[in-house]
Design a protein around this nucleic acid. Structure first.
Lengths: 195, 195
DNA sequence: TGTACATCAGTGAACGCGCGTTCACTGATGTAC
DNA sequence: TGTACATCAGTGAACGCGCGTTCACTGATGTAC
């Protein structure tokens, strides 16, 4: 709980950060322990001094991915709100921005892994559920006044689904899908053009 | 193109059918060639007399999964329409029915694999894009009169996302998310209560 | 109807490879005096 | 300030295992006459 982390803590953080990007880029099973360690500038042997198992790393990686993405999301939203956008519009425009099509590895961990999440057991599955509920709560906190809080689940599903389908389609079709979804969400929940 | 398939064609169909369920249950990488063959009542050696590669099977499996699910979907929708539901309401109520929470292996292949789809190359990636566009077109064909056709993408994203999040959450939370999404979609696009 | 042979569909051992995990060891850092 | 030693963080070889793929072979089915 101080400013200067030990050598080991720095390594730990680096490994988790590499894994947080790797799972979003390649999926839960898309990258191995050895490659993660190499990308963190280490050799694979040292891994188990940091984590009990590969699954334990996945849990920490999901947390880190969520924390980092939430910070970036909030920052980008703040910029839009400073320009007069409502919090809800800022969320939709940021979460479904065209750049999200290719920024999978620093993007939303739920969108990156949603269809793999139901298959995860134990600690990984539990952490996946937390990531979904956290995202839903974040969306709920950004709903415009007057909108029923129960709409948070629907808005979250729409945004997560749209990002996945757009990434699958790619290119022009993907960008069109994102644009239509942005417009539809804002038009439905924030029809008074923003303020 | 006749009624009685050869011995080999029957095996081929059985393998594809097993794979179509396996990828929806476990993901693209969740089951191996040997296990698929065993589940089809064969041994793994014969696999390459049927397919050029594992990827070639995945392509056929996605097609079969889509075809079978579309048939089941249409049938269940027809039952609801016979009871007075509109085509759109029937689609939403069927696609987001509570039973879909656990029927992953016979359910929608897009919902089962959406977050893995953007990572697939070549033939598998191409088939994944086809499965997405096909689903969007099916949804478009079910939109109520008067709704802009461009809404098909948004509705599809909402349904696919909702099914994934609900499956991740599971249990009561999952069913609540499905119910809210069903209600929101029908209320928005088919507010005149159905007919 | 029966025999001889070709083709077909599937078998099971083997391959090279990459994975998660373990472990004996090493070199660097920190502490005691 | 310097020496001796303990601890710490990371190394790299090795393990058992499962995977996709290949291939020589076998038994069953179908065809020719």
């Amino acid at each position: 709980m101080t400013t200067h982390a030990t050598r080991k803590e720095q390594s730990h953080e680096r490994i988790v950060d590499v894994a947080a990007r790797a799972i979003r880029r390649a999926g839960y099973r898309g990258i191995g322990v050895a490659d993660i360690m190499k990308e963190a500038g280490l050799t694979h042997g040292g891994f188990y001094a940091h984590f009990d198992s590969r699954d334990a790393l996945l849990v920490e990686a999901m947390q880190a991915a969520s924390r980092d993405n939430r910070a970036a999301l909030s920052q980008a939203m703040a910029r839009r709100m400073a320009k007069g956008r409502s919090r809800f519009s800022a969320l939709v425009l940021t979460y479904l921005h065209d750049t999200q099509l290719v920024q999978t590895e620093t993007g939303c961990v739920v969108a990156a892994l949603a269809s793999e999440m139901p298959r995860q057991d134990d600690a990984v599955g539990q952490e996946a559920r937390r990531r979904v509920t956290d995202l839903v709560e974040f969306v709920r906190s950004a709903l415009p006044h007057g909108v029923e809080p129960e709409q948070a689940e629907v808005v979250t599903a729409t945004m997560v689904g749209a990002l996945q389908l757009a990434r699958t389609l790619g290119g022009i079709a993907g960008r069109a899908l994102l644009a239509q979804t942005r417009q539809a969400l804002i038009q439905k929940y924030q029809p008074t053009s923003d303020f």
